[in-house]
Amino acid sequence: MDFKLKIWRQKNRDDRGRFVDYEVKNVSPDASFLEMLDILNVDLVKRGEEPVAFDHDCREGICGSCGLVVNGRSHGPGRGIATCELRMRGFKGGETIVAEPWRAKSFPILKDLIVDRTALDRIIAAGGYISSKTGAVPEANSIQVPKPAAEEAMDAASCIGCGACVAACPNSSAMLFVAAKVSHLALLPQGKVERKERVLKMIEQMDKEGFGNCSNNYACEAECPKKISVTHIARLNREFILAEIS
């Protein structure tokens, strides 16, 4: 398959950036979107041009490194996949494909398609954990967790921290990401002790990082590669109100 590409190129944080047109030829329909970019990059290097910089690592949808807005959608067309899981067979031969980085104030662009998402780590560091010191814990089966709670916690915990929810949101809100962590821990008996402090600190840090508010747009859920449900945002809100009033 052959494709025309419009790719965002930006030298560094301070550069203004622009779209540049490219062409790639003879791409296997089974190739992934990132493998298509690999082919482009080998070509570029051979011509002495700088390859397109993009984040990626596991290439199987779990590390959360990759993240491109493809044809206007976070992680491209298709539901429940990360950019690395996007396959070229889903595009039409000859089609023009537009690829840009996540756009959000809290995710400064470092180069081309790479952004800095460390704001998400700082939200976790503010309180996204259970304070259990190494060694100072009870026997594992002394804590019973009802299966439905365990399952729902697992749904929430499967967030890969990619930031697509932020990129998809018109307000650049990180609510789905924060909700996934708050919900995961609040659902488990082990996580209940610190639940109030946790939600307050994480929300405080989220605001400090400049993420926007949630206006129930639900674009986050639609683009989340792990299909994290917005019902977790509802739980986050409940947790927050509970913590505020007590």
């Binding site: 814990v137 594992a140 804590i143 019973q144 299966k147 365990a150 995961h184 488990l188």
Partner: peptide
């Protein structure tokens, strides 16, 4: 033990 205390959502049976 450590991982459970941290909130790792391991698979569980119906009794929890």
């Amino acid at each position: 033990d450590q991982c459970v205390a941290q909130g790792v959502p391991f698979a569980r049976d119906y009794a929890g």
